[in-house]
Design a protein around this nucleic acid. Structure first.
Lengths: 146, 146
DNA sequence: TCCATTTAGTTATCATGATAACCAAATGGA
DNA sequence: TCCATTTGGTTATCATGATAACTAAATGGA
């Protein structure tokens, strides 16, 4: 998350770059702009997910299971290969999705330590219901920029 | 923070857009790319700050006080006008900066409820020491993209 | 002037990210 | 086959974001 409400002016960046002797003003300004734009979008997305009792991470867990081409379930470790988040956080978040019945847990035939995680009907419905608003939010946001 | 390790392929976005009837494939893909690029940069920045016993927010608090043109101190509420973060988080983080002696607290002559927050010598030194690496990190990152 | 409202800061509590350290099952080389 | 290592998952603890609700001082209109 990036927090500066007012980005440093071109002049300030130029001064800092001159003072430290590092980088180019253009590159730095572009990066700061990008950070702020992304933070803004992330805030909007978080608010959107939260209004549906979800979070960014919960949404993505549902998505990666849903988008799997051949099978309809994944192990925790397989989800972890697809999402850049720590094991304990993933574990906790999956438990929360199990509690709210968006996911269900199946035994893993091949490994007694593991379970397979699949979307419930409720999970599929939730995803279907949320997706349009998600795309719409992103589209609207990108339009307003530029 | 954005977590997808592999972005959805162009085709997948196209399918989702077609299924939901919302947005344009290009715009969505561009937004997802931007989110991932920003998340990556934020991770690098967090790691950098953390290696100097700081955080993104702590750094920015020091910066907004330091970049003030006429005065060398700000109230908590004035910092809050410049940074997009909640009051309690700002309060907690300022306390941490006071404990580590990067900030000092002065009385506010005009308002008995408020205090003025100024950089200590240690705070100024830390900032001066960190700034070059900060710009360098951003420059390097932006070069690697593109 | 006096009291209702606003403002500055703080506390309590929760959500969601991380790392370290652990158990138990699976694996694989001597 | 047996034990060391790897792998899947979990627990404990911490960092850092949020909101709600509070105190005390400042402010401003009747």
């Amino acid at each position: 998350m990036f927090f500066l409400k007012e980005l440093p002016t071109e002049q300030m960046v130029k001064d800092y770059v001159a003072k430290t002797g590092v980088g180019s003003t253009d590159t730095i300004s572009k990066a700061l702009l990008m950070l702020r734009e992304a933070s803004h979008l992330i805030r909007l997305l978080d608010a959107y997910f939260s209004s549906h009792d979800l979070s960014q991470l919960k949404f993505l867990i549902l998505v990666v299971i849903d988008r799997e081409p051949e099978i309809d379930s994944l192990r925790q470790s397989e989800i972890n290969q697809r999402l850049d988040v720590s094991k304990p956080v993933l574990n906790r978040t999956i438990n929360s999705l199990l509690e709210t019945k968006l996911l269900k847990r199946l035994d893993d035939e091949e490994d007694a330590r593991a379970h397979r995680l699949a979307l419930t009907k409720k999970g599929k419905n939730t995803l279907k219901q949320i997706m349009p608003g998600y795309f719409e939010l992103i589209s609207n946001f990108m339009e307003q920029q530029s």
